[in-house]
């Protein structure tokens, strides 16, 4: 096991440092916005991955859970003056529990049937909020900018959002890595591979799917609270199933089956789709989406296991590991 400090850790630190100083170089709100979007989509993808990658249950209802979180955060702030930071906590617990309880009867459904149920729930929430006076009906609600600062999580500048999103992404990633290597992670992965085997080694699939749903929906609800404050305006459209694809696509392209894959997918896809819409959409409306779709289809056709799925089994990875080990040996002397 490689636990010691080495070149990999150094590279990671450098990467984080670069991320930390990006706002001092990138000044335009547009560019900074792309970073923020990438980070929070990355968070959403990681949250989705707890169910999608680790447990193998494909949800297309996560936009609904994110929307619920967004509404909880915004309504608490607007109507009760409760800070979004507490809102994040409330959203995590409430949405996590709600999703787990609603989906629990559907855990016996496999594959596409489970997916259909998640779509149905998200759609139900969207309709509920479209008709709910307290939540501003179809017009949605504004999160006003009357007070700036940490308490309200509202700023005119995008820089604070940049750092919050970055930290959130790092925290989410660390949480997922921890889960991946824990007892919970082994339970989820075993269930994903074969539920009968899971039972046979002593895993209660129901219990662990409940926990996974709780964490997955709860985490994306936290992203929702961030989103509401960052954008400053939410309406029921954010619960649309098409919005859920923002979190599913990166996971599939990056590689379901690992934690790094979905993160990598988000880091590649989000800027790519921004770039395409900036460069192509004025040539012909929707052209950017066509190109995006073609790229996604190409990856799925040629690398069905995603980028990381390919990488994990490639010679390239082995070469890179050998190179890193060699550098480690040179820098720190021979160890273990």
């Amino acid at each position: 096991m490689r636990k010691k400090f080495g070149i990999r850790q150094i590279l990671l630190l450098v990467l984080i440092l670069i991320c930390l100083i990006v706002p001092t170089f990138v000044k335009t709100p547009y560019m900074l916005g792309i970073f923020v979007t990438t980070f929070y989509i990355g968070c959403g993808t990681l949250a989705w991955s707890v169910l999608g990658s680790l447990t193998g249950e494909i949800s297309l209802g996560h936009a609904g859970f994110m929307g619920l979180g967004a509404y909880i955060g915004a309504l608490l702030m607007n109507n009760k003056h409760i800070t979004p930071w507490v809102g994040m906590l409330v959203a995590f617990v409430v949405v996590g529990l709600l999703a787990a309880c609603l989906l629990a009867p559907c855990f016996v459904l496999s594959g596409p049937y489970f997916t259909l149920v998640t779509i149905a729930f998200a759609e139900a929430f969207r309709n509920l909020f479209t008709n709910w006076d307290y939540a501003g009906k179809g017009q949605g609600i504004l999160v006003p900018l009357k007070e700036q600062g940490m308490y309200s999580m509202r700023w005119i500048s995008k820089v604070p959002y940049y750092y919050i999103a970055l930290i959130m992404l790092i925290v989410f990633y660390v949480i997922l890595r921890k889960i991946d290597r824990s007892k919970l992670g082994y339970a989820l992965k075993t269930i994903r591979e074969d539920e009968e085997t899971a039972n046979a080694v002593g895993i209660n699939p129901f219990k662990y799917k409940f926990i996974a749903t709780f964490i997955s929906a709860g985490l994306i609800a936290v992203v929702g609270v961030f989103y509401a404050n960052y954008i400053g305006y939410i309406n029921p459209d954010i619960m649309k199933q098409s919005q859920a694809l923002n979190y599913v696509m990166p996971a599939i392209i990056g590689g379901i089956g690992s934690i790094t894959g979905p993160l990598l997918g988000a880091i590649i896809l989000t800027p790519l789709s921004e770039f395409l819409s900036a460069t192509l959409s004025h040539i012909a409306g929707g052209l950017n989406l066509v190109v995006y779709a073609v790229i996604v289809i190409a990856v799925i056709l040629f690398r069905p296991t995603g980028i990381m799925g390919w990488f994990d089994h490639s010679k390239f990875k082995k070469k890179m590991n050998d190179r890193f080990d060699a550098i480690d040996a040179k820098l720190f002397g021979k160890r273990g």
């Binding site: 007892k183 082994y186 339970a187 075993t190 899971a198 002593g202 895993i203």
Partner: peptide, 8 residues
């Protein structure tokens, strides 16, 4: 095999 070990 870890799966077996952890839940046994």
């Amino acid at each position: 095999v870890v799966s077996g070990a952890i839940f046994g």
